[in-house]
Nucleic acid binder design. Structure first.
Lengths: 248, 248
DNA sequence: CGCAGAATTGATACATCTCAAGCTGGGTGG
DNA sequence: CCACCCAGCTTGAGATGTATCAATTCTGCG
């Protein structure tokens, strides 16, 4: 808890790091005040389960810091990650009683939660929230569809390259860096989580990472820290068009 | 065109077959009047492309009758279907200039289109539209995530069984039938389209259909008409829990 | 009737999975 | 402080499911 809160101590929406990107992005000061009435923070340590699929869920909320995942599990244990939740991403569905997926913290996380009932009522009165949520949901749907192409049609090597590219891109946009020079960052996922993301086994993930390393598409310092010497080369390996499929 | 319009001749929202399910579902009479101002119908024949990915798109709209697909294509030609559009499903994204996917009619279809600019303006004034669109988008996101599990973790046999189950379920709900007795319906997709849906080759699709037929999980009259003697058996083969993963 | 697109079936190749054996590095208790 | 331990990771060898290439067989239609 202390670890997770270390980088985030404020309870004031005004200096919230995700103020301009989360579900509250379009809210004016009055609306923010109202949201503050029903909000509270919760922290989870890396590895903890936030909610189990099928469990009742009496809140919705936003990831403030850290990374969480949405996964689906079949009866025999096969697992597929279906969402990667980064800061500002929304968890839960207004109008739904129970969680549809397992939500797991992969790093320490802080969430900004709203009690579901009051939030739903406020949504009806406050178009700004619904509008922003629609926008975010459409973005998620696009991401899910890109992911479907990856799962259905890409080779293991392309899958790994794609995942690395996605994380690199997110990091670049978070840190405001351009594409001009070598990018470096940490993989926030274990090999097993990557396998669940990509529809592979963890052994195949490991092998393909080794192969990309051998071919100098990526460089690694330790098991988690990655350097991309040539982003265009990586995107080529990912099978995306050179511009990374950006939809303006 | 005539074929497609045969089952739908009205231009009055009042007797529209998707009135209660489409993006206009929550609209009152006044709002419907306003929508009628900016709406027009278009028909496409089976096989026709409605829009190409990347092309400018100056309308949004709903499928009224027939079935269309959303597909993504890689540079080397690999294709993955990322959406199956049934009557009442929405096409296009408010705020987006260009189509993100290829939209193709797989049967003759009729679409109810709205000019994009006026529709966007009306959305800002009319919470009912945005609310319904949010609901529909969240449903699509759930469907996309179920599909991701299929693409990432299911075997070819399970994929085919799942697809048949999905179509059977939709048909049952359209025709109001319960689960009690044998269901029969037409596959609205070619083997190739099924392959694109499932992330398989068309040969594998064909082989697995033959296998399910041999094992009496499905029965077929001709190449398209299917009978399900035992729905629970089919769901078992699909790898879903017995209740089909219904989220109430 | 015969052609063309759609579907089936067969033989083989190959990518990924499975099972199994080590490796590595950071934390812990003796 | 060091040896051990253990989770996470890597690598290997062999099995297997699906893709690929190729040949027929259907089926609807001009």
């Amino acid at each position: 808890m202390d670890m997770a809160m270390a980088t985030f101590n404020s309870h004031d929406c005004g200096d919230c790091p995700i103020r301009h990107r989360a579900v509250c992005a379009r809210c004016d000061d009055r609306e923010l005040d109202e949201l503050e009435q029903i909000k509270y923070y919760r922290s989870y340590e890396a590895g903890q389960t936030v909610v189990w699929s099928g469990d009742p869920m009496d809140f919705v909320g936003s990831v403030v810091t850290g990374i969480a995942t949405l996964t689906q599990t079949m009866e025999d244990g096969r697992r597929q990650m279906v969402g990667l939740l980064l800061p500002s991403d929304f968890v839960g569905r207004p109008g739904r009683e129970r969680a549809a997926y397992d939500v797991t913290a992969t790093t320490d996380i802080v969430m900004c939660c709203f009690r579901k009932k009051p939030f739903e009522e406020m949504m009806l009165r406050t178009p700004h929230i619904g509008q922003r949520l629609l926008e975010m949901t459409l973005d998620e749907l696009d991401a899910a569809r890109e992911w479907m192409l990856l799962l259905g049609r890409k080779t293991a090597r392309e899958k790994i390259a794609s995942l690395v590219a996605i994380i690199a891109k997110r990091d670049a946009s978070a840190n405001g860096a351009g594409r001009e020079r070598a990018v470096t960052f940490d993989l926030p996922l274990t090999r097993e989580a990557m396998a669940d993301y990509l529809g592979l086994t963890l052994e195949t993930v490991s092998r393909q990472i080794s192969a990309l390393r051998r071919d100098h598409v990526i460089e690694m310092q330790g098991k988690r820290h990655v350097t991309i010497p040539d982003m265009d080369r990586l995107l080529e390996e990912a099978g995306d068009d050179a511009d990374g499929g950006m939809l303006v």
